[in-house]
Design a protein around this nucleic acid. Structure first.
Ligand SMILES: [Mn+2]
Ligand SMILES: [Mn+2]
Ligand SMILES: [Zn+2]
Ligand SMILES: [Zn+2]
Lengths: 159, 159
DNA sequence: ATTGAAAGTGAAAGTGATTGTCAGTATCAT
DNA sequence: ATGATACTGACAATCACTTTCACTTTCAAT
């Protein structure tokens, strides 16, 4: 989905919810849509702050909340510390592998795991609403040596 | 592993680390080993507090940290809010399914999922150090109806 | 049993990410 | 243009811990 389209969606959500389209919200949403990483509220604030010094961190938090409500952003909590936000829009569900050394975040999808999760839940008498699967370890670069192959990966992370 | 044995292990860890065996640590560890749930520091504090009013919440936190270092406790962070602790000792690795309605926690093991995780990591060029798999949904009781079967489950949760 | 260096304790203050409050400001349907 | 309603930023508050600090307790060496 193009940035323009996302911005449009956001405005629609605001109108439908009886909210107002403010200069701050425009700026923050634009800056968010311009990213393609997992970004913290603080980091997004720093970016927006560069364009307009008068914007507050609090408003960034509030706008990210609105973006979540609009279904345009996902909030992730990797380990402890600050939350990271990423685009939700059209992208399919995915899980994350995080390097404990350099913080690199790699996204992956695995239908087999998803199917097995459903099976586990069914056996336990549960209905899954959502899940959290995070693999933590060392990436190729963060091990002294070098070896192993890859597939279709997206390296997407920034604090 | 029996409670006595665990208490013994804890004392050994203290001695090896040049730490002291205090009345408070004995009491807190005993109370922890007496649980078989996922328990918060606060909840454990309330239990110990019943036996000895003079013990502080801070010391409970400190002792839980020691128990982790001794390899006798695991700390879990389900969703947001306070951490829950459980015995580590002999029990094998397991993951969790959590009811978003009543908070019930059910443990499960699934070798196939574990194997697939390793495969994913290998393809991405990572070496897994640890992982987090949590399924969130509604349990049988928390859906209006009743149906479905189970396997070997342990329902283990308490805040 | 005594001693004293090192570690431990509880109370209270601090932390850090996020959320709530509030008085002044901006938006937008009319 | 206008006014009801929503929004904003600064600041305070929250929440789950963690740190600090002025005493206590432990325990190896007497
Ligand atoms: Mn992602
Ligand atoms: Mn468990
Ligand atoms: Zn790395
Ligand atoms: Zn339930």
């Amino acid at each position: 989905m193009a940035m323009q389209k996302k911005q449009q969606n956001f405005r629609q959500h605001l109108v439908r919810s009886g909210l107002k389209a403010t200069r701050q919200r425009e700026l923050i949403a634009r800056a968010f849509f311009a990213t393609n990483t997992h970004i913290s509220a603080e980091a997004l604030y720093r970016r927006v702050s560069g364009r307009d010094r008068r914007i507050g961190l609090v408003t960034v938090y509030r706008t990210l909340k609105l973006l979540k409500e609009a279904g345009l952003a996902h909030e992730r909590q990797f380990g402890e510390g600050r939350a990271l936000f990423e685009h939700a829009s059209s992208e399919r569900h995915h899980d994350h592998m995080i390097c404990t050394h350099c913080g690199k975040i790699v996204e992956f999808e695995n239908c087999e795991i998803e199917a097995l999760q459903e099976e586990v839940a069914r056996k336990l008498g549960f209905t899954i609403q959502y899940h959290k699967l995070e693999l933590y370890g060392r990436c190729k670069e963060c091990r002294a040596d070098a070896s192993g192959g890859t597939g279709r990966i997206r390296v997407v992370g920034a604090r």
